[in-house]
């Protein structure tokens, strides 16, 4: 029986229909759970709303939320905290991630186990990791205080969660611990795609181990580094649960990042319009930052 020419999706001229058909469910889902809320929050940020309800009539258009935001000291503090977090955590994630990847990329006995251990923190749920670290850093019973005193680094216990600098350091530590395995896994994948002969050629050319790292390994990893950096930065930027469970943004707002501030305004003080404005700013900063990063990644591989 001849198939209808119109419905035969295997025909070359109909093939793109099949593509659209297969894409449709994903596109619909994304539209429903990402694009629609996005528009709603942009809309909310221009209204004076306290508790948002979709069945309420629209409030009049206003830019009061943004004016308040830019005048607020808390907002600039949160920006600074977020910036510090992103810079410090990304830097140490890369240092640790690349280091461990280079280590487990070597052939040795127990390599599979070592790779597993390196990746382990990634598999642990954030909240559980935070609870573990909260105990480690506990001011009376914590392992860290005991260790620091034993090592002679301090002479009295540190109250980790009441000193702004110490609390910030603990948050950074947990985030690095949680985030470096991802970098490590990405770097390991990148390392394994570098042809062995690059290293052989460099060895014959007289390059020492450090020179091979700087001139061969790092440049060959650049595309992976670019993408990984963006993903890690975005993760730090919007991570909520680690800071919220560990410090709740305190003490004295020392760890209040933009995402914590958004949550506090929306569900602590029920100022959803104001919170939406913070969210929109966060979104814009993220988009610009990741565009810059991707554009900076060299296109030479």
């Amino acid at each position: 029986m001849p198939r209808s020419a119109f419905l035969d999706l295997a025909r070359p001229s109909r093939r793109h229909w099949l593509g659209y058909l297969l894409l449709a469910p994903a596109v619909l889902l994304i539209a429903l759970i990402i694009v629609y809320p996005l528009f709603v929050s942009v809309d909310l940020s221009f209204q004076n709303v306290n508790i948002a309800r979709l069945d309420q009539p629209r409030r009049p258009f206003t830019t009061a939320n943004y004016e308040r935001l830019f005048a607020s000291e808390d907002f600039w503090n949160a920006c600074w905290v977020t910036f510090k977090l992103v810079t410090i955590v990304s830097f140490f994630c890369f240092l640790l991630g690349l280091g461990t990847a280079l280590l487990v990329n070597n052939r040795f006995k127990g390599q599979a186990l070592a790779r597993l251990l390196v990746a382990l923190p990634w598999a642990i749920p954030e909240v559980i990791a935070v609870v573990i670290f909260a105990w480690l850093f506990d001011s009376s019973f914590g392992l860290m205080n005991w260790l620091f005193i034993k090592l002679g680094l301090v002479d009295q216990t540190i109250n980790w969660f009441s000193s702004p600098d110490a609390a910030f350091a603990v948050v950074c530590t947990v985030m690095v611990w949680k985030g470096y395995p991802f970098v490590s896994i990405m770097m390991l994948a990148g390392l394994q795609s570098i042809p062995e002969d690059f290293y052989n050629a460099a060895k014959v050319d007289g390059a020492r181990a450090w020179q091979r790292l700087v001139h061969i390994t790092i440049p060959s990893l650049m595309p992976v580094i670019g993408v990984t950096l963006v993903l890690v930065m975005l993760w730090v930027f919007r991570d909520f649960s680690i800071i919220y469970v560990l410090t709740g943004g305190g003490p004295l707002k020392a760890t209040q990042s933009l995402s914590i501030m958004t949550y506090e305004q929306a569900f602590g003080f029920f100022k959803m319009g104001y919170a939406s404005a913070i969210g929109v700013i966060t979104l814009i900063v993220c988009v610009i930052a990741s565009r810059l990063m991707i554009a900076r990644a060299p296109d030479n591989i």
Partner: peptide, 19 residues
């Protein structure tokens, strides 16, 4: 070490550094 032997090698896949 290879670098101290004062030899040069041409590889099958050339091993040119793409960057």
């Amino acid at each position: 070490a290879p670098g101290d032997r004062d030899i040069a090698m041409v590889f099958q896949n050339y091993a040119l550094y793409p960057h």
